[in-house]
């Protein structure tokens, strides 16, 4: 139950952050957008790791909260003007959090395989709701014509329409989410959920009402997942129902595994790696005809990750850190 990152991990993360700060200065719009997506999905994967890796609840419906926040932003954004982030973000989080509370209240009652199927089913219910109804563009998806802005009084402090503004806002949000989840994991609540992951029965015998702790953990993950969804909607200003779909949930789980389950920073790196691999597979110069069917390679990659990778990228970094520490001694 060591939550506080070691010095080595902090150094590695600072290195990554330094690279991230540098990216917008390249001025390459394609890259800036791609890295924004990486950071936002990294935040999403991190929130999923909070429940999968620390509470032991394997949710296959995490995209529900991601997509729900994105749709909420669409629904509260007027068509002719930008919405103020200062109230829009809390509203989006409220919607995601409430959905997580309701879905969680029902699904946390179940365990293991049931939990996987139930979370998947509820997320899919929301998918079909947005896909089949016409409240937000149905299967075609919905648009956000003006990105949120931060306005205080008369003063516009920030406009997420600017690519670099959104980029840095996402970077700060990612760092905030990491710090926020770290603080929670270090708190009494955080220790309790980690205890539940290791031995839930014993936690009950010690006197913890584990249901409540699991539910609150599920809601926290839903909130951060919703935050990520809010940002994701700002990237393209487009919200397709697929954001809530099972593929999105599945890929987030792949990011968690690829990045290293239960390391928190790892899944963010997993998101970077997975999106990077996806870009690679789509590269015509390298894969030719096959690049049009890159999903086959992605599927094979997912299978390879599951079969071969044990502790993911995060695990690898931790291991190197331990080695170095050992050799210093």
């Amino acid at each position: 139950m060591t939550v506080i990152p070691s010095k080595f991990v902090i150094i590695v993360l600072c290195f990554f952050i330094a690279i991230l700060i540098f990216v917008p200065f390249t001025g390459d719009k394609y890259w800036i957008k791609l890295v924004t997506r990486m950071m936002v999905l990294g935040m999403f994967a991190m929130s999923l790791d909070f429940i999968v890796g620390y509470t032991g609840l394997v949710s296959f419906g995490h995209a529900a909260f991601f997509g729900l926040a994105a749709y909420t932003l669409h629904l509260i954004s007027p068509e002719e003007t930008a919405v103020n982030l200062l109230w829009a973000l809390p509203v989006c989080l409220l919607v995601s959090g409430t959905a997580a509370a309701i879905i969680g209240a029902l699904s946390v009652r179940t365990r293991g395989i049931y939990f996987i199927m139930v979370t998947l089913a509820f997320a899919q219910m929301l998918f079909y709701f947005f896909h089949d109804s016409d409240i937000a563009g149905g299967s075609d998806g919905a648009f956000i014509y003006f990105k949120p802005v931060i306005v205080l009084g008369e003063l516009t402090l920030m406009d997420l329409d600017g690519q670099n503004v959104l980029y840095f806002f996402s970077l700060v949000s990612l760092m905030f989410a990491y710090g926020f989840l770290l603080i929670i994991l270090r708190s009494p609540f955080g220790r309790v959920i980690q205890g539940i992951k290791v031995n839930e029965h014993r936690m009950r015998a010690l006197g913890y009402n584990t249901y409540i702790y699991k539910l609150v953990s599920f809601i926290i993950a839903g909130l951060i997942g919703g935050y990520a969804g809010f940002l994701f909607a700002c990237i393209d200003g487009f919200v397709p129902p697929e954001l809530l779909g099972w593929q999105e949930s599945g890929l987030a789980l792949v990011m968690v595994i690829l990045g290293g389950i239960g390391t928190l920073f790892g899944p963010a790196l997993g998101a970077v790696a997975l999106l990077g691999v996806e870009e690679l597979f789509r590269e015509r110069h390298i894969f030719g005809q096959l690049s049009e069917h890159w999903q086959i390679m992605l599927g094979a990659f997912v299978i390879a990750v599951v079969l071969m990778l044990k502790n993911g990228i995060g695990g690898l970094i931790l291991k190197i850190g331990d080695r170095l520490k050992g050799s210093v001694r």
């Binding site: 999968v52 789980l253 599927g299 990750v305």
Partner: peptide, 22 residues
Amino acid sequence: DHLQQVLLTFGLILIFNELQQI
């Protein structure tokens, strides 16, 4: 564990879906 089962078969779906497209 279940997580690995779910993800491996998820990978299979991606492959089957793309094969279907082809």
